[in-house]
Structure formats: structure tokens, C-alpha cells
């Protein structure tokens, strides 16, 4: 289905779709809401693009701009939920609980044990085909810092999954 979007907006979406959804999911949105909020963010950003200062094709310019809009939309949604006395959903884990794949299940459980900042960078990088540049722009970090976090997160996850899958840990099924 062709959406007939402006090429610049298509470029934004192609670059930031995955990292932005991952970021929103890290802020406590469930995956579906994160996806909807990301759509809202791109639409709002495009409608108010005249306020963007800088090159619209520059990742380092667009990333923080999108993050700001996403943050406002997410905060507004939370306030609304709070007014309605609905409890915010906890950040969802990356895969459904009832997956039949043991390997994925152990990974999922290990992921749940990771530090929040490690979870965030993994969500943003691995949800879609993303590069560290976009993740860095959204998190307002350097690419090196993102690479470093990814490295540490993957190492930590390996350690956790190894521990969970060893027979003595009682984590294997």
C-alpha cells in the first residue's frame, strides 16, 4: 500500500520508525500504543515542520525534534490516563509470553532482567533495521556511546541467558 508521502517524511519514517517506537515503548507505552504514538509524532512533526530549525535531512537535527514531540504526546497521554484514573501499563517485554520457541523465551526472560537503559537501546536498535546514528540522535548521545551501550547490553544479556539456561540455575524448561 503506497501512502503517497512526501519523500522527506518518508526518509524520516524510514530512519526513525523503529528507534522511535522502541523509545516510546521504553517510556512505558505498550507496543501498540507506542506504534500509534510514533505515527502521531511523525504526523505532528510534518505538520509543524516549519518550526524545525536546521536541515530536515540531517539525522542529528531531526532526531531531537522527533523526540521532543514524542515526549509531549506521550506525556499528554499519561496525564489523560491519570485523569481517568487508569494505571499506566508497564513497559512491555519484547515478545509475546506464549511463544513456543524456548530460545526466544529465555532471551525474553533475560531481557526483562536487564537494566532499563540497556533495554532501551536494544529496543531502539533491534526493533527495526536501524543504525546507531538514529538511535544516537533520539537519545542525544554520540554514536560511540550508543555502540558502547549496545555492546554492554548484549554482553549482559548473554550472561543472563547463559545463567538461565544452565541446569543448575533452574531457569531452563
Amino acid at each position: 500500500m503506497a501512502a503517497n508521502l512526501d519523500p522527506t517524511l518518508e526518509l524520516w519514517i524510514a530512519r526513525f520508525r523503529g528507534p522511535l517506537i522502541g523509545l516510546l515503548a521504553s517510556w512505558g507505552e505498550d507496543w501498540r500504543s507506542a506504534e500509534e504514538l510514533a505515527m502521531d509524532t511523525f504526523a505532528e512533526a510534518w505538520l509543524s515542520r516549519r518550526r524545525l530549525r536546521g536541515d530536515a535531512s540531517d539525522t542529528a537535527v531531526v532526531g531531537p525534534w522527533l523526540r521532543g514531540i514524542a515526549h509531549n504526546l506521550s506525556r499528554h497521554g499519561r496525564r489523560r490516563r491519570a485523569r481517568q484514573r487508569l494505571e499506566a501499563l508497564p513497559a512491555e517485554l519484547p515478545a509475546p509470553v506464549d511463544t513456543p520457541d524456548d530460545r526466544i523465551e529465555i532471551l525474553r526472560r533475560g531481557f526483562a532482567e536487564l537494566r532499563p537503559e540497556d533495554q532501551t537501546v536494544l529496543r531502539m536498535f533491534y526493533l527495526d533495521e536501524s543504525s546507531t546514528r538514529e538511535v544516537a540522535a533520539l537519545l542525544e548521545l554520540t554514536e560511540k556511546a550508543v555502540e558502547s551501550r549496545l555492546y554492554q547490553a548484549r554482553r549482559a544479556l548473554r550472561a543472563l541467558t547463559d545463567r538461565m539456561s544452565s541446569p543448575t540455575a533452574g531457569g531452563a524448561r
Binding site: A3, I13, G18, E35, A95
Partner: peptide, 27 residues
């Protein structure tokens, strides 16, 4: 030392957004 890229991509595969549906949603 680390979990492989492919394993992590598999982990997130069920949550991966459909590119066309996403673009249509923005449109």
C-alpha cells in the same frame, strides 16, 4: 561474549511494525 544480532532481531520480530501500514497510518 555477546548475544548475536540475529537472535535479538528474532526476539523483536513479533513487535516489528509493518512499514506500509505504518506509512499509511501517518498518511
Amino acid at each position: 561474549e555477546m548475544v548475536h544480532d540475529t537472535e535479538l532481531r528474532d526476539l523483536f520480530a513479533p513487535r516489528r511494525p509493518d512499514a506500509e501500514e505504518f506509512a499509511a497510518g501517518v498518511a
